[in-house]
């Protein structure tokens, strides 16, 4: 029962954070909303039985990406500048799209019968050891490719962002 209510709390965090991120006009609040949402998501991952991914979520997303976004914001927009008035028609269109999409997907989900696995795999199978083993054997190519992509991204980011020599 307690476990259940904790899960609902995480769901609430995800949605509240998402709303902050989507609707706030100040970029800083949006970033904070993103962080809250990602935190809730990490909790949901935990409830789904994957502590490692949850930890990675917190470490990389909240600790890395969110902070990087904050830096970018600070480097680009003067915090004191009042954000421009929102375009009402544009917001309406965005909300309309989102609502239509949400209900379409919800209808699909309700309409589909998923084959449910009777008993989830045992805790041991979800261990970090099993994950690491899979990553370095079966999914080795993906792992290496991803590391290459990250390297390229870093080099590319430096190249793009550096000051031009005049």
């Amino acid at each position: 029962m307690l476990e259940q209510s904790v899960v609902y709390l995480f769901v609430a965090l995800v949605l509240i954070g998402g709303c902050m991120a989507a609707f706030s006009r100040q970029v800083l609040y949006a970033i904070i909303g993103l962080g809250i949402s990602l935190l809730g998501l990490a909790g949901l991952f935990l409830s789904l039985g994957s502590p490692f991914v949850a930890a990675m979520q917190v470490l990389i997303y909240i600790g890395g990406i969110t902070v990087a976004i904050v830096f970018a914001m600070m480097l680009s927009i003067a915090m004191s500048v009042r954000p421009p008035d929102p375009d009402v028609r544009k917001s309406m269109f965005a909300i309309g799209c989102a609502v239509v999409f949400f209900f379409a997907v919800a209808y699909l989900i309700r309409d589909t019968s998923f084959p449910q696995v009777a008993s989830p795999a045992s805790e041991k199978a979800w261990s970090v050891g099993a994950l690491g083993h899979a990553l370095l054997t079966h999914y080795n190519l993906v792992f290496e490719t991803l590391s290459l992509v990250l390297l390229l991204a870093i080099i590319g980011a430096i190249l793009i962002a550096r000051k031009e020599k005049t």
Binding site: L15, A21, A30, A98, F101, A106, I109
Partner: peptide
């Protein structure tokens, strides 16, 4: 889906 919709609005 709800999170996706919120992201879309954003």
């Amino acid at each position: 889906a709800a999170l996706f919709a919120l992201g879309l609005i954003g």
